[in-house]
Design a protein around this nucleic acid. Sequence first.
DNA 1: CTGCATCCTTGCCGATACTG
DNA 2: CAGTATCGGCAAGGATGCAG
Lengths: 120, 120
Amino acid sequence: MIGGIVFTPANCPMRDVLGNIAGKWTTLMIHALSEGPMRFSALKRTIPDISQRMLTQTLRDLQRDGYISRTVYPTNPPSVDYALTDLGRSFLTVLLPLVDWSTSHHGAIREARTAFDAAG
Amino acid sequence: MIGGIVFTPANCPMRDVLGNIAGKWTTLMIHALSEGPMRFSALKRTIPDISQRMLTQTLRDLQRDGYISRTVYPTNPPSVDYALTDLGRSFLTVLLPLVDWSTSHHGAIREARTAFDAAG
DNA sequence: CTGCATCCTTGCCGATACTG
DNA sequence: CAGTATCGGCAAGGATGCAG
């Protein structure tokens, strides 16, 4: 039988989990940290067009959900390291295939858009 | 060497592909169609708290990007079938693991949030 | 260097009413 | 049944300035 599934908010972790990683910068940041810890300024260079406001906010959201850790070194000037937690590295196992898929099918999607828009 | 990657919008399909599937309802709709074609009203029942406006708009966006097809049967009253395309089914291979991951780690994420908020 | 505070713009999304 | 049209709230996000 088809159609018996109902996605109420209550039985749907997709809402609560994917909703947060669906932000504009979230997956980008996790992916940037996949090769190792990075400092605030390094992340800023890796994603040039993110504002400082969004960088700070996204990092805090990811830390809150347990994807990344934040380590402060009280040097002068101070430096802060961000790194993936075990949860964050676990998430990579499903994120990286998603990124690969996006890369492989980017062309097909762009063609579909053009065709759709042409059909008016 | 670490840190050599720079995510400019130009070299980053994540922006163009994941940005569109990151909507509030998008992945939910693709997942709903994973078992077979569904009509407009059936989708509405599957995702009870979506508005007609968002249902229509999300379906059109997904059709534009080539994930789903739209078939109109000129009966009276009219009926419309939505179904995954090959591209949409291909996307399922990376979406479903993501959904499974969300389900398995939902608890850990909620605990992380609580701990973070408690730490203030 | 690594943030936080503020203002402002944009666009997502819901509610409602109306159509073939 | 399957949409379209319009209005409005609210949150995401950008720009700028200030602080530890």
